[in-house]
Amino acid sequence: MSIFVNKNTRLLVQGITGKEGQFHTRQCVAYGTQVVAGVTPGKAGQKMDDVPVFNTVRDAVKATGANCSMIFVPPPFAADAIMEAADADIDLIVAITEGIPVMDMMRVKNFLSGRKSRLIGPNCPGIITPGECKIGIMPGPTHKPGGPIGVVSRSGTLTYEVVHQLTQQGIGQTTCIGIGGDPVNGTNFIDCLDAFQKDPQTSGIVMVGEIGGTAEEEAAAFIQQHVTKPVIGFIAGLTAPPGRRMGHAGAIISGSSGTGQGKIAAMKACGITVCENLGTLGELCVSVFGK
């Protein structure tokens, strides 16, 4: 088992003919993901390797039965691409694009409300169910198939680090999700925690947060009430100065809100085991989850 994606997921790629779209589509195919279609306006009828390209998402869905979209469209056009996918009733939309204006994402988020599509990202590495399907830009071999741990994170390379430490300890993963580093995103911590709690193969969860916003505090309250599986939390940015955006558009301490110290305190108060030194995360996972 896994959450959101598995070996039956039928992927289409928006922006498949661009440099990044091409490169990562090939990586996903090599990992075993079923890539059934690509979309680039004006390039219908062409093929990217063996993948047929369509003008619109609706055409691609009709012809191939795609139920998931991975988006590599550049920032000025990414919001439009997400809304197009949602309007074609794609189940899961994974937006990799970094640098989408906040106002565009606020419009997208309100547009999605009441629709069936789930959005992951933007500004994220994507989602992977190790051994079954990779939808995103993460390095496949770092992951270990078979579970039993679920990983959810606001970061990219920091997630790889976390997964690497799990794998080094011989601990596999059910599904790993990067929810993205932007202030306004689709799927949040709580959605993933809820899904991991309900997934019978997941026996523990690692949650990787960072400074800015209140998502970690809300997730901690949810865990206390609804999650019975052990959760290990980590927060990046304890040494970040207030008022500065630390790379991610969402990673900023505003006044007294969004500090790492506040998030760690909230997590501890809700009974979550907090990893305070990233160098020891793997060992902590062994002691909490077992091998």
Partner: peptide, 16 residues
């Protein structure tokens, strides 16, 4: 460092 999250975590571990 490559990546904002890992960069922040690296700053933190230097401090630790």
């Amino acid at each position: 460092v490559n990546g904002a999250g890992l960069a922040m975590a690296t700053m933190d571990i230097i401090k630790q």
